[in-house]
Structure formats: C-alpha cells, structure tokens
C-alpha cells in the first residue's frame, strides 16, 4: 500500500500527461484549501496546474457528483474506490457517458481520517479505472479493517431511542444531501410542495421522517462512503440508516452497489424467487 505522498505524485504525473496531450479538457481532483491540510475540489484545465493536485488523509469528499456539471466535456476525475463505485452507478443509471470520462483510480486506498465508513470498507481498489495510481491490495487484506457498530444487540426500543437522540440535533441543513453522490434529483422530495412529503418546520417528527425517506432513496444505490457523516455539522450518525440499507441489500439480495457498470440498481430489477422476508404469514 502506497502512502498519500506517493499517490499524490502519481496523480500529478498522470494529470500533467493527459492535459498536455489533450486527452481531456479538465481534471477534477483534490486541492489544498485555505486551512492547512483541508481539502477543496480542484478543476484543472492547464498542465501547469497539475502540481496543485493533492491526495491526503482529509480527502473525504465524493468528487463523482461534479461529473454531472461537465456532462458533455471530456473530463478526468480522481476517484477513490468508493467514488469509482459511485461512477459505476452513474454509468448504470445512464446519466453520464463512459466515453466522456477518464477515471484516475486510486488503487489500495489508505483510507480517510475520521471516516468510520473506511473501517467497514470491503473494496479498497478502484473498480473502474483508466489510469491506475497506487498499488492494488490483495483480497485477503481488504477485510482487515472491518469493524461494524453493534446495532443487532440493541432492542427496537433502544434503537428507536438512539435515533431519536441523533435526529433531535438535526437542523435539516441538508449538508448530507449535498455531499451525497446519490442525491442528484433536480427537485428533491424535501423541497416538493405537491405532494408535500415533509413539513418545512424542524421538529423531531419531521427530522426522523426526512432521514427515513432519504435512507429509502439510498436503498440499493448508497455505496457506504461516509461522505454524509463527515459533512454533518452536528455530528449525527447519518450513515447508520444508509449503511443498514447497504448491508441489507448484500444480505438478502446478494447485491453489491456499483461493482459493475452494467448492473441495474437494486429496486429497478426483480427476481421471481426474491425473498419475502418480513411479510405476513
């Protein structure tokens, strides 16, 4: 596994090369923000700018969402393993074109500091990639960091209480939505007036409903990258519900999100012999 500096060097080298020979018009990557070591998205169109690209322990944001702003341009994007799965999902949902994008895939991602999702990560190599940086980790090593929160040992009442305590703090700033690559709807259900899914007031009842509805949109599309949790200014365990959806898809339907660009999303497909877990009788 290569460290952050080595990966940064490789990203810069590749970005410079593909901008020089005009393979792409733009490279989307991570750059240093105003505060030391903090990260901001960086859009580079000249080869000289490639030296500004970095990859460090704070590179938590999901850049995949920026692809939607450059739909008809040739762009290259720096993708962590989770972002590469997000790109695969976009491709399978046919909202971006494979020929328009080049992926600089980070193989053997060293993980992001403070991101609990990285501890549960099963895929630490980019699943779609035109240019590889870093080096692949063998399958054996990928599960080393696995560590899940133990919700199963709690009773429904305890879980209900836990989530009430969490969502009570929610101010509905929608930072989790903005950070999430899944949430690209032009009109979000939170802003819809007809039908009015959510009351605009911030109360526990509405907050809880918002998080349940968001989790339901995540079902079979969330790649469990943890961007929502890191974006939350209140430090709410936003990822828990989405992670549950992710794990349920794996357990019940043997479905892994974003592993293949031809794979349909979970709820856009069915199998005649699907499980009826939880049905009456």
């Amino acid at each position: 596994m290569k460290n952050y500096d080595q990966i940064t060097e490789e990203i810069r080298k590749i970005a410079k090369k593909i901008l020089n020979d005009k393979t792409v018009d733009k490279v989307i990557g991570f750059g240093l923000g105003t505060i030391n070591q903090e990260i901001t998205p960086l859009f580079i169109s000249k080869a000289e700018g490639a030296k500004k690209l970095v990859f460090n322990k704070n590179s938590h944001m999901s850049l995949a969402k920026y692809l939607l702003n450059y739909k008809n341009e040739d762009v290259a994007i720096v993708a962590k393993p989770c972002d590469s799965r997000a790109i695969n999902t976009y491709l399978s949902e046919k909202i971006i074109n494979r020929n328009d994008i080049k992926v600089i895939g980070i193989q053997g991602c060293p993980g992001i500091e403070g991101n609990t999702a990285c501890l549960e990560c099963e895929v630490r190599n980019a699943v779609i990639s035109d240019y590889d940086v870093g080096e692949k980790i063998s399958k054996k090593k990928t599960n080393q960091l696995k560590e899940e929160k133990d919700f199963d040992s709690l009773s429904p009442e305890e879980r209900f209480k836990y989530f009430r305590n969490e969502f009570e703090r929610c101010t509905r700033c929608y930072a989790c939505r903005e950070a999430c690559y899944v949430c690209y709807c032009k009109e979000c259900f939170t802003e819809s007036n007809q039908p009015e899914w959510l009351n605009k007031s911030v109360s526990l009842n509405e907050n809880f409903t918002y998080h349940l509805m968001r989790a339901m949109h995540m079902a079979g599309r969330c790649v469990n990258c943890g961007a929502c949790e890191l974006a939350c200014p209140e430090g709410i365990d936003v990822r828990a519900l989405a992670a549950k959806m992710y794990n349920t898809a794996t357990e019940i339907f043997d479905y892994k999100v974003g592993m293949d660009q031809k794979q349909k999303t979970l709820l856009a497909e069915y199998d005649v012999h699907d499980s009826e877990k939880g049905f009456m009788e």
């Binding site: 349940l212 898809a249 979970l266 497909e269 939880g278």
Partner: peptide
C-alpha cells in the same frame, strides 16, 4: 415483483430505526 423488493427494504429499514 418490483414492489416486493421495496417492501423488504422498507421493512428492514423501519425495524432497524425502531418501528415495531
């Protein structure tokens, strides 16, 4: 058949969130 998958997912989600 499409609905069935949705219900299984919703059921798991609601139970996980603490709805009996």
């Amino acid at each position: 058949l499409y609905a069935r998958r949705k219900f299984v997912m919703l059921n798991e989600l609601m139970q996980f969130a603490g709805v009996k």
